[in-house]
Simulated assay, not measured.
Amino acid sequence: MIDPFGDARVQGVSIRSLPKVSLHDHLDGGLRPDTVVELADAAGVELPETDPARLASWFARQSDSGSLVKYLETFSVTNAVMQTREGLTRVAREFVEDLAEDGVIYGEVRWAPELHVTAGLSLEEAVEAVQEGIEQGEDAADDAGRGIRVSQLLTALRQGDRSAEIARLAVDFREDGVVGFDLAGPEDGFPPSGHREAIDIVGRAFLPTTIHAGEAAGLDSIRSALLDGRALRLGHGVRIAEDLEVVTRKGEEVRVRFGDLARWVRDREIPLELAPTSNLHSGAIAAWGTQLEDHPFDLLYQLGFAVTVNTDNRLMSRTSLTRELAQLVAAFDYGLDDLEAFQLNAAAGAFLPVEEREELIELIGEGFDA
């Protein structure tokens, strides 16, 4: 395994040192194991392991067990220690510090406020606590000479009934750190069309939306995200490859027939928030294989889709953006130009004003040129 905080290199350059953009990263999936232990002790939460190293291994085993039930158990642990203002602020601060340490210069952190109010916090107080932690993390990173900006994406649970409430919350905080709205949870049986009020609320406010789709379910989930959910990005979206038919292969040359949905996503440059390790763990790429080399990432990239590279849940997948990029380099023989293309795609898809996206693109270009 490549060390998530190691010094993997491409063309002699440290991947960790390169400027990166992270679009799909869950707050409750990015805690430090020692922080989980300390917060659990303070809150009286029982853990499966109390040693940070063994706890980290437990998270990794559960997440790569092939069982969705075991995978979801890991989030009950992290969410249990994120129920106070102090806990949320600390987790958010460390989340940002860890991104900056990994070379990320812009990130969007997604989380579901409704999962963090069981100890008495209001939804508003929870958002404020996370924003306080983000700003503390940005300041700490700046003091360490690592400039970073992080924005919030507020997630509603598609199996729940509070999506309209979360949509209003996102709109209310759009001037205080929130840049977009997300729908997550079970894709099968809970389409975005069931959350029309929420989609209308953020739509009328012109607040961008990204929706989990094309991960646990196939093309219908992607179609619904785009048509019913008005998604500007696809959370994962890896199964858009099901709408591609390989017609012929001659050496490295591949001829592909596009379905209408795949062509729309490609031609409209709708960003795919791909998370290679997570896609393996969740079985999202089971139709293509069980190894990273089987991931349709390279096919989508070569065909011109707006692919981006993400971690999804750094704790559960025991990963970092550096590690994800290093694994792709090893699997597909990518070079610096390819890694830069992934960052430029992410910068272009960020939920920021165009002027700020252009500044981000300039920073990426300067960093890779250097």
Rank of each mutant, 00 (worst) to 15 (best):
V10M: 09
Q11T: 06
Q11A: 13
G12C: 12
G12W: 12
V13N: 08
R16E: 03
L18N: 10
P19C: 10
S22N: 09
D25T: 08
D25M: 04
L27F: 08
L27Y: 03
D28N: 13
R32Y: 05
P33E: 08
D34P: 02
T35M: 08
T35E: 07
V36I: 14
D41T: 06
A43D: 15
L47Q: 12
T50L: 01
F59T: 10
R61Q: 10
Q62K: 08
D64M: 11
G66D: 15
V69N: 09
K70M: 15
L72A: 04
T74I: 06
F75W: 10
F75K: 05
S76K: 15
S76H: 14
A80N: 14
V81P: 11
A100R: 12
Y106A: 03
E114D: 13
H116G: 01
V117C: 07
A119F: 10
L123S: 13
E128F: 06
A129K: 09
V130G: 03
V130S: 09
Q131L: 05
I134G: 02
Q136D: 15
G137A: 03
A144M: 02
T155D: 01
A156C: 07
A156W: 00
E165F: 00
I166D: 02
I166V: 12
F173A: 03
R174V: 13
D176G: 04
G177Q: 12
F181D: 04
D182C: 15
A184L: 15
G185A: 14
D188M: 13
P191Y: 07
P192D: 14
P192N: 15
H195K: 09
E197Y: 04
E197W: 09
A198T: 05
I201T: 05
V202D: 00
G203A: 14
R204E: 15
F206C: 06
P208T: 05
T210H: 08
I211E: 02
A213Q: 04
E215S: 13
G218H: 11
G218M: 08
I222A: 05
R223H: 11
L232K: 14
V238N: 03
R239S: 01
V247S: 07
T248W: 00
R249F: 01
K250N: 10
G251M: 02
E252N: 01
R255I: 01
A262N: 00
R266I: 00
I270N: 07
P271M: 00
L272Q: 02
S278P: 12
H281M: 05
H281F: 05
H281N: 14
G283I: 09
G283C: 13
A284C: 07
A286I: 07
A287C: 02
T290D: 15
Q291A: 15
L292G: 07
E293H: 11
E293W: 09
L299Y: 06
L300Y: 00
Y301T: 14
Y301M: 03
G304L: 03
A306W: 02
D312K: 06
N313I: 08
T322E: 00
T322K: 05
R323W: 02
A326D: 10
Y334F: 15
E340K: 13
F342M: 00
F342V: 01
Q343L: 00
G349P: 08
E355K: 11
E355I: 11
E358Y: 07
E362H: 11
E366A: 12
D369I: 00
A370L: 09
